[in-house]
Computed example of a mutant assay.
Amino acid sequence: MPALRDIRRRINAVRSIQKITKAMKMVAAARLRRAQDKIISARPYARKIEELIQRFISTFESGFDEPLLKEREVKNIALVVVTADRGLCGSFNTNIIRKALSLIEERQNELPQGGKVKLICVGKKGFDYFSRHRRNFEVIDSFTGLFRKTIEYVWVEKIMGRIVEGFLNDEFDKVEIIYNEFKSIVQQRIVVEQFLPIVPKFEIVKPSKGIKVPLVEYIYEPDAQDILKSLLPKYLETHILRILLESNAAEQAARMTAMDNATENANELLKDLQLLFNKTRQAMITKEMLEIASGAEALRKAEIA
């Protein structure tokens, strides 16, 4: 039977941890509201500019003289892994890293001999894992500390600049991004997207075989290529910003859920410890009463003798 002092010490320790997890849950809830508002506001613009870019590259059969749109033989792939800067958010980082490991192995098997999967880590947790892993992954760049408070636009420019520079310099021939998409407070979805080169995601259906299909044709001023060159940087920056906002909102939701579960678990543990404390105390009282009764009975027998 454990001593009452040890049980009381454990109860105090659990209560202290419960206060911390409860406070962290409240902080995560406040940050989640702000992050959720930002991503909900950013999604319509991101979808519209992507739709506009897709219409440009899908409508014109001749294509554009734009290197970011040209597919080439894939010898090296850059994988941008977006994780959090901090832990205590459940399986948020673990799931991303596990999926990234699976994706790295899959892409490595698809590449020709000598091809490499190069990593760009966004978030400290992913960088710490891949830079210290015994398999010696090739981490060519990292961006950490951007999720601490508000996501500043300068981070978007740095990440986009590094990716575009590497692609244009043939450091890698394809860029994919893996991140957590915010679906709801209790659900986050891991998404893998191709970032570069930009490829058409749908086809514009044109009239054929006498079937009349409405097709809107626009007159561009200036010409379509100039407009595309102006829109591409905005599209890429918006895409990265949306991904960072998605990941940030998903992280706060995961942290709030994890801290809520930790608080509930601490509460259950406190109930078990309090019950153990009461049982132990009752056993000690019963033992003392038996000792007193036994001593009194021994004295009574001694007086009779």
Rank of each mutant, 00 (worst) to 15 (best):
K149L: 14
T150D: 07
T150W: 01
I151M: 12
E152D: 08
Y153W: 11
Y153D: 12
Y153E: 10
Y153L: 02
V156M: 07
V156K: 02
V156W: 02
K158G: 04
I159G: 12
I159R: 15
M160D: 07
G161V: 01
G161C: 04
R162A: 11
R162L: 06
R162Q: 07
I163M: 13
I163V: 11
V164L: 12
V164D: 02
G166R: 08
F167D: 08
F167N: 05
L168Y: 01
L168F: 00
D170R: 15
E171A: 11
E171P: 00
E171F: 00
F172Y: 15
K174H: 13
V175I: 14
I177V: 15
I177R: 05
F182T: 01
F182C: 03
K183C: 04
I185T: 04
I185N: 09
V186W: 06
Q187W: 05
Q188P: 10
I190T: 12
I190V: 12
V191F: 05
V191T: 06
V191C: 05
V192E: 10
E193M: 09
F195V: 07
F195W: 08
F195K: 07
L196G: 02
L196M: 09
L196K: 03
P197S: 09
P197A: 06
V199D: 01
P200H: 05
P200L: 05
V205N: 07
K206C: 05
K206N: 09
K209L: 15
I211R: 15
K212M: 15
K212E: 13
K212F: 15
V213A: 13
L215Q: 14
L215C: 14
V216E: 09
Y218T: 10
I219V: 14
E221N: 09
E221K: 13
P222M: 09
D223L: 06
D223T: 07
A224F: 13
A224R: 14
D226W: 06
D226R: 03
I227Y: 11
I227P: 07
L231E: 05
L231T: 00
L232H: 05
L232D: 01
P233V: 02
L236S: 01
L236R: 03
L236A: 01
E237Y: 03
I240L: 09
L241S: 15
R242K: 11
E246N: 11
N248R: 02
N248P: 06
A249Q: 00
A250E: 09
E251N: 09
A254Q: 02
A254F: 11
A254I: 09
R255C: 03
T257A: 15
A258F: 14
M259Q: 10
D260M: 10
N261M: 07
N261H: 07
A262E: 08
T263Y: 10
T263C: 06
E264H: 12
E264D: 10
E264Y: 12
E268A: 10
L269F: 05
L269K: 14
L270M: 03
L270S: 04
L270Q: 08
D272V: 13
D272S: 08
L273G: 00
L273K: 08
L273A: 02
Q274S: 04
L276T: 00
L276A: 06
L276C: 01
L276K: 12
F277D: 00
N278Y: 05
N278L: 00
K279G: 04
K279C: 06
T280I: 05
R281P: 00
Q282G: 04
A283H: 04
A283T: 06
M284I: 03
I285N: 01
I285F: 11
T286N: 13
